[in-house]
Simulated scan of single mutants.
Amino acid sequence: MTWLPDDFTHPTLVPLPGGTHHLRPIRESDAALDYPAVMGSRERLWTLFGPAWGWPAPTLTYEADRADLLRHEKEIEAHQSFNYALFDTAETALLGCVYIDPPEKTGADAEISWWVVDDLVGTEPARTLDALVPRWIATDWPFARPRLIGRDLSWTDWLALPDA
């Protein structure tokens, strides 16, 4: 059994309500916007993702970030996992990411997590993204038991689950 149906087509553009931001699959060419977003919020992101993913390391270089984005781009093309970047309308700023992954732990058919840059924490765009992601996953993705890591289950509790 594969992770996604063979005929599934992933969304390529997801507007956020309000018309000032959108999600789209990340690409290697986004590194010039991704790297400063990640490193500018690195300490907070490490508290979220560090124990589980070892990311983002304090020594992350631009080239390593670019290589990581190329890996994500290839995984998206192959429907192995998905990384959607949050952009302003003109795509002059990358403001966060949404990850949609096959389950690493038992009890779910997908694992979803997301973040925004430090400057957006607690703002209307962040609240809009927080409201959108669960609804978007429920309506546009073929999952019966998605797990929202860091939302409906803490990262600590997720780490304690048995591997899939």
Rank of each mutant, 00 (worst) to 15 (best):
Phe143Thr: 05
Leu153Pro: 10
Leu70Met: 08
Leu70Lys: 15
Leu23Phe: 08
Leu48Phe: 12
Asp7Ile: 06
Ala67Lys: 06
Gly122His: 09
Leu69Ser: 09
Asp30Met: 01
Pro51Tyr: 07
Ala138Arg: 12
Pro5Gln: 00
Leu70Ser: 07
Arg147Met: 06
Leu69Glu: 01
Leu94Pro: 03
Ile149Arg: 15
Glu124Thr: 14
His72Tyr: 08
Arg42Cys: 14
Ile149Tyr: 08
Arg24Lys: 07
Thr47Arg: 15
Thr92Phe: 03
Gly19Pro: 00
Pro17Thr: 13
Gly150Thr: 05
Ala64Asp: 13
Val98Met: 00
Gly50Glu: 14
Pro162Val: 01
Pro142Thr: 08
Ala90Ile: 04
Thr61Glu: 09
Arg147Pro: 01
Thr59Leu: 10
Leu45Thr: 05
Leu48Ser: 15
Thr12Ser: 13
Thr9His: 11
Asp65Met: 02
Ala144His: 13
Thr123Phe: 08
Ala138Phe: 01
Phe82Tyr: 02
Phe87Ser: 06
Gly107Glu: 02
Leu129Gly: 05
Leu16Asn: 10
Ser113Thr: 15
Thr2Ile: 13
Ala31Asp: 05
Asp30Pro: 04
Ala93Pro: 14
Lys74Val: 13
His72Lys: 15
Thr123Val: 09
Thr128Cys: 11
Phe87Gln: 03
Asp88Leu: 00
Arg135Leu: 09
Pro134Gln: 00
Pro56Gln: 10
Leu60Ser: 15
Phe8Ser: 04
Ala37Phe: 05
Leu69Ala: 04
Ala126Leu: 11
Gly40Ser: 13
Pro36Ile: 05
Trp55Cys: 13
Thr139Gln: 08
Pro58Glu: 01
Phe49Pro: 07
Asp65Val: 06
Gly54Cys: 01
Asp157Ala: 11
Thr92Val: 02
Thr9Trp: 04
Gly54Trp: 08
Asp7Ser: 13
Ala90Ser: 14
Ile137Glu: 07
Ile112Asp: 10
Gly54Ala: 12
Trp46Cys: 14
Asp109Phe: 02
Leu13Arg: 14
Gly96Tyr: 01
Asp88Trp: 07
His22Cys: 06
Ala85Leu: 01
Asp140His: 10
Thr123Met: 12
Asp88Gln: 02
Ile26Phe: 07
Arg27Thr: 12
Cys97Asn: 13
Gly54Met: 09
Leu23Cys: 08
Leu120Phe: 05
Pro5Thr: 05
Leu148Ser: 10
Ala90Asn: 06
Leu48Lys: 14
Glu111Val: 01
Ala138Trp: 02
Glu43Arg: 13
Arg151Val: 14
Asp34Trp: 00
Thr20Pro: 09
Phe143Ala: 11
Val117Lys: 03
Asp140Arg: 10
His10Ile: 12
Ala57Cys: 11
Tyr84Leu: 03
Asp152Glu: 15
Asp157Lys: 11
Thr59Asp: 09
Gly107Tyr: 04
Asp101Met: 09
Arg145Val: 14
Phe8Glu: 07
Asp130Val: 00
Gly150Glu: 05
Glu91Met: 07
Arg24Trp: 02
Ser81Gly: 12
Gly150Phe: 07
Glu91Ser: 10
His22Glu: 02
Ala160Phe: 07
